[in-house]
Nucleic acid binder design. Sequence first.
RNA 1: GCCUUUGUAGCUCAGGGGUAGAGCACUUCCUUGGUAAGGAAGAGGUCCCGGGUUCAAUUCCCGGCAAAGGCUCCA
Length: 615
Amino acid sequence: MKINVTLPDGSIRQYDQGATAMDVAKSISEGLARNVLSAKVNGEVRDASRPLPGDCSLALLTWNDAEGKSTLWHSSAHLLAEAIEALFPGTKFGIGPPIENGFYYDIDPGERAISDADFPAIEAKMKELASKKLTFSRTEVSKADAIKYFTEKGDEYKLELIEGLQDGQITFYTQGNFTDLCRGPHIPDTSFIKATKVLSVAGAYWRGDEKRKQLTRLYAITFPKQKELDEYLVMLEEAKKRDHRKVGKELDLFTFSEKVGAGLPLWLPKGAALRERLINFMKTAQEKQGYQQVATPHIALKGLYVTSGHYEKYGKDSFQAINTPQEGEQFMLKPMNCPHHCEIFASRPRSYKDLPLRFAEFGTVYRYEQSGELHGLARVRGFTQDDAHLFCRPDQVKEEFLKVIDLVLLVLRALNFQNFEAQISLRDKEDRSKYIGSEENWVKAEQAIIDAAAECGMKTVVEYGEAAFYGPKLDFMVKDALGRKWQLGTIQVDYNLPERFELEYVGSDNARHRPVMIHRAPFGSLERFIAVIIEHTAGNFPLWLAPEQAILLPISDKYLDHCRALSASLKDSDIRALVDERNEKSARRSAMRNSPKPRSCSSSEKRRPATAPLA
RNA sequence: GCCUUUGUAGCUCAGGGGUAGAGCACUUCCUUGGUAAGGAAGAGGUCCCGGGUUCAAUUCCCGGCAAAGGCUCCA
């Protein structure tokens, strides 16, 4: 009896019953066999050493496949666990999955604390075990046996995991002295793991629940070649150099003060000027689309947020009310601009002919963030949104939404972002208690976003549970230098706040109607946006944004006057120029960093007209 | 908020129970016509803050605050 195996190129080969993916690899080439990490059989990733189930399609997975990498990292997690168990006996284990870059294992080392001082020992142990060429053997076990094994081992985390599994579908994998509950698959043996680096240690709640015990999470990464690890570490170093917190300091853009408070950025002159340029860019684009600027105060009576629903939702987790000394009034720092803008809409009767109304404000808002969440400019407690609220008729929603998408894409293009992701953020599928408003309104709003995104042909991903409490969102996500994802622009369709604020306009039928609101912020916040463009450009801003568009470097004092004249002339043409008058060579060089167009100046240059185009 | 780590000159960092250290930056003078470092001299510190142990604490212990990496959260 032979089985037919269909390979990715469409060719069909015949093998004996019971042949493994590894056998197939060997029959193709020795080199391939040496590199096979796992195999995709009829679309399911499995051990390369498992017998094929019969006629099937087969793709051999190597380090060049994402799934191959995951297999190696998953096996590496088991190796990490074995090393931990050897070094710190009695450690209990949570889960240890592969992730985008490497893998982690959540462990409970009991009384002992694991710190980065332990990393070298762990790495050495992993390396030692890897070189033993231990195979990963798969065993199917009954639920009772599985429970027995981990009860004897005293590992309550694994027992909890087993509880959630079906009898008959439980497998163990064993390599060397370590056996783990695992559905697999794994690499053929540990010798494929040639380079190992434990990256960091962090706390992580068991099953992601902050009410449960906090385990110790070890992040690590492995490679099949030492050279690849070295390159990865170099890449991490390079990414660190782009960190906006570091570059922002070097460029004198912003600072923080312990006296002012954590998460409250102080913008230095160059940073403030950068903000101004972004604001003007946005104002110009918005004026073309018929927006009107409004301005509102930084505090409002608590009642405003009771009306909007923000108080009920976030009141406990916000900065607390400010009380007046005599009258006993309670004011809140504004966390959002939308309630204020609703009141502007409500300030007078509106006709259908007035709509859409587009109120824009670079509004600074304040939100309490847990101290551990603060992160440079990307997560702060006070920030400025390029906010606007569009009040429109139901029949105008789609067109307005599409125009906002244009605006967001204009921003992303102007700053040369190619790798952004458009995310449709919908309600949680199960828990609807987190949201205000009627089912009918939500369905309308969600459909409006889905339709608009589809109509402009944008590639999107759908995330459930990511909606705001008053409406669904279209969020634009980008990654920072270290691969962390941040939300920048956002567009939200909202049928609920107009209802809560009882907003109305008079229709052509002379009856009162409820407008629909679109919340939108193409930058998101200036703070986070600037953080991301710093990392995106490594501080080398596009010319229109750069703090200094031209720096003149006289090579001797003899040319100072000429440089000053040249600089004045450039300034007359609205080019931000400065003369670096410092005498040290080193100063000249350091000034050249992060300047898009450094120019040196001497007699040969002097012959050219001062308005010569910047080369 | 929770876990781990860190806090010394403007920056990057070394040090260590008994007058505080380096490199770069800064100031002054000299030198200089060329793309990452010309020379000399000088100034600069509450060693994060508060308690404790000690004859003596920047160093050891406890508590705050801030920062880094995660977790949970994010209008």
